[in-house]
Measured scan of single mutants.
Amino acid sequence: LKKVVALYDYMPMNANDLQLRKGDEYFILEESNLPWWRARDKNGQEGYIPSNYVTEAE
């Protein structure tokens, strides 16, 4: 899975979204639905995130 790091905080707009915290790492599960990607956080929560809020992890 592709790993990304959040560049900004993101508060979910609806139940399908995943909250982002700046500096945290996330795994990308699906990239087909631009600009929204399906992601999983370190706690196993899954949801959609804005792809322009993250960058690929080193």
Rank of each mutant, 00 (worst) to 15 (best):
L1H: 09
L1M: 11
K2E: 02
K2Q: 05
K3E: 03
K3H: 06
V4M: 08
V4Y: 08
V4K: 03
V5E: 04
V5W: 10
V5Y: 10
A6T: 01
A6C: 04
A6D: 00
L7E: 04
L7P: 01
Y8F: 13
D9C: 05
Y10M: 04
Y10I: 03
Y10V: 04
M11H: 12
M11Y: 14
P12Y: 02
P12C: 05
M13I: 14
M13A: 11
M13E: 12
M13W: 07
N14Y: 12
N14T: 10
N14D: 10
A15M: 10
A15L: 10
A15I: 11
N16M: 10
N16A: 11
N16G: 15
N16D: 13
D17C: 14
D17P: 02
L18I: 05
L18F: 04
L18S: 01
L18C: 02
L18P: 01
Q19C: 10
Q19E: 14
Q19N: 06
L20T: 02
L20W: 01
L20R: 00
L20V: 04
R21D: 05
R21W: 12
R21A: 08
K22V: 08
G23A: 03
G23F: 04
G23M: 03
D24H: 14
D24F: 09
E25L: 14
E25G: 04
E25N: 08
E25A: 09
Y26N: 00
Y26P: 00
F27H: 07
F27T: 11
F27A: 05
I28L: 09
I28M: 03
L29C: 05
L29H: 03
L29D: 02
L29P: 02
E30C: 11
E30Y: 10
E31Y: 11
E31R: 09
E31L: 09
S32Q: 07
N33G: 10
N33Y: 10
L34H: 15
L34F: 15
L34Y: 15
L34G: 15
P35H: 15
P35Y: 15
P35W: 15
P35V: 15
W36I: 14
W36F: 15
W36D: 07
W36S: 11
W36L: 14
W37N: 03
W37A: 05
W37L: 13
R38N: 06
R38G: 04
R38A: 06
R38Y: 15
R38H: 09
A39R: 00
A39K: 00
A39E: 01
R40M: 14
R40T: 06
R40F: 06
D41P: 00
D41N: 11
K42F: 07
K42P: 05
K42I: 10
K42V: 10
N43I: 07
N43V: 07
N43K: 10
N43F: 13
N43M: 12
N43D: 13
N43G: 08
G44W: 04
Q45Y: 12
Q45K: 14
Q45C: 13
E46I: 10
G47N: 00
G47K: 01
Y48M: 13
Y48G: 03
Y48D: 06
Y48S: 05
Y48K: 05
I49S: 00
I49H: 01
P50C: 13
P50F: 08
S51Y: 14
N52K: 11
N52E: 12
N52D: 13
Y53P: 00
V54F: 04
T55D: 05
T55H: 08
E56T: 11
E56W: 14
A57I: 15
A57W: 13
A57M: 13
E58A: 14
E58V: 14
